[in-house]
Design a protein around this nucleic acid. Sequence first.
DNA 1: ATGAAAGCGCTAACAG
DNA 2: CTGTTAGCGCTTTCAT
Lengths: 342, 342
Amino acid sequence: MADADLSPPDGPVRTITDLARLAGVSAGTVSRALAGNSLVNARTRERIQQLARAHGFQLNQMASNLRRQRTGVVGVAIPLGHDRRQQISDAFFMTLLGHLADELTEHGHDLMLRRVIPDRDEDWLARFTGSGMVDGLIVIGQSDQFARIEAAAAHYLPMVVWGNHQEGQRHCVVGTDNRLGGRLAAERLLAAGATKLAFFGDTAPIEFAARFAGASDVAAQAGVPIIACPTPLAVDRMPGEIARHLARHASRIDGIFAATDTLAVACLKQLHERGLAVPERMRLVGFDDLPVAGQTTPPLTSIRQDIAAGARGLVDLLLRRLAGENTESLVLPPELVVRATA
Amino acid sequence: MADADLSPPDGPVRTITDLARLAGVSAGTVSRALAGNSLVNARTRERIQQLARAHGFQLNQMASNLRRQRTGVVGVAIPLGHDRRQQISDAFFMTLLGHLADELTEHGHDLMLRRVIPDRDEDWLARFTGSGMVDGLIVIGQSDQFARIEAAAAHYLPMVVWGNHQEGQRHCVVGTDNRLGGRLAAERLLAAGATKLAFFGDTAPIEFAARFAGASDVAAQAGVPIIACPTPLAVDRMPGEIARHLARHASRIDGIFAATDTLAVACLKQLHERGLAVPERMRLVGFDDLPVAGQTTPPLTSIRQDIAAGARGLVDLLLRRLAGENTESLVLPPELVVRATA
DNA sequence: ATGAAAGCGCTAACAG
DNA sequence: CTGTTAGCGCTTTCAT
């Protein structure tokens, strides 16, 4: 009767119960053994883990998560506002995402990425936080969703947002001091000899608005004019818009503050084509200090955002919120990196 | 006795059962109503959906998934081989990821992103596919994991890989014909007057090896020398290595094929600094045709990979595999984009 | 058209 | 130290 199992076709071992039968113990014991629980006899634990490995057994996370009421997954939402397609392919956001993946992996969390189009889906936030699929949420970019995020923050603690900090806001945000960054940019342009400034970029997104505001502060203080040249981030439309602005305003400006390096690089090209020498005839400062900034000719002066530090901050704060702490926002200092364009 | 519910403090309605009690029906009915099941009376269905909306009710996906044995989530794994940190921040991979997110969202799937370090975790693949957390898997880049991926493909159907196609391989792959791309690059260099070639890039990754092989084919056929200059992709080490190679070989070459545009841009800068005119003294062709290619001075000639088409292909094939079909691989044609560097 | 009941695969008391 | 038991929140037969 007692037929020893020489382990011929045992059939696939998919569940913890299969494994239990094979090991001649109960499912509970297997669960404990696999979790490395010290309450289980060291030898049986080792035996079970051996068996699991031999059969390539993998715990069903779905079931485990449901039972334990936690998932080990952090949601990352990228809301796409007006500018749609652009944001996500923007080098800055992508780099931030890469660092986030690093950090979260490091802390044993998976990352569930979701692009959301707010005007098409009113409660993208509730859908994510209420799904039970994620323990917490990181939102990359406020886009035009400031109000909705504020509202969600009232009930939902484990959420951290990359973006701009507003006086008295409720949601926890990590981001660069954009206004200060704008100031640094304008100051540099003036120091490099500029006397008539222009800002290239969309001023609707709150981050860009702050950069423009900072530059305007400095310009006003110095009694220097600054004109806003609205420029989309979409790669295909960017060069045309820049060309148009330059055709109209080039004669009246000698210093450009570009809202992002991507824009600055495009400006550089247009300036070159129009024969406007940089920095002699036209000074140029970008924002972000992407890797490309060091590669252009001439190399681009830019305002550096420490993306890695930003990612670390986002994850650190989120983890603390997951632990119940009501954390403060984190504002990172921008840094002027002087190269050759201003 | 029959106290009507004027809905005072009903307490939070978190589960389908809460909702059922509120609606005065059974949980089963609520489940059907929320699923839009036509078997439920149209009026009660509407009433329940109303109630759900009013209370901001969200279905617990975890439980739903467990029961239905599907998740609506597609895993995306990025294996980091030797070059570690680099791959993920590489503009090409990031762009591909962005398009993937687009496509998957479009088809109603979420995306679970996981960076894996194969040498640190032997069964990263099994851990992902067996977790029950994802319905299928997209692997971005074969890195040095060709064998492991082949092995997994034997048991696991719903997996598609971005990378290079090998004769007779088992796993389903989507990627550019790198060898052909290499050929196009070399042919262009020769057509532009080059007579002594160099390849800049790491030849260990299988994709790059194929690019080099293609270029070598052409060089051999034309009786022209080509030397391999191993160059890491890491941003910090790249310029130094390029400078070293140029110092050693610049006099003996007049055409460079760079394995990626990122590398090509760095080359351009180094060439400029050494006073080597492009394309007069040195022709240069990149690979990928990233947005930056159009922005350099002079604009970069490059071999275009259609990233959006690649993402569409990956998702399309994966969906068909999820439906049980055993799909063929998809090889995309590269395209020479002539600008000014060759 | 709806309710009752069984269970997806796992974990965590609670007993022994 | 280990087995038994009761669910996590949902979906889906099977009855009615």
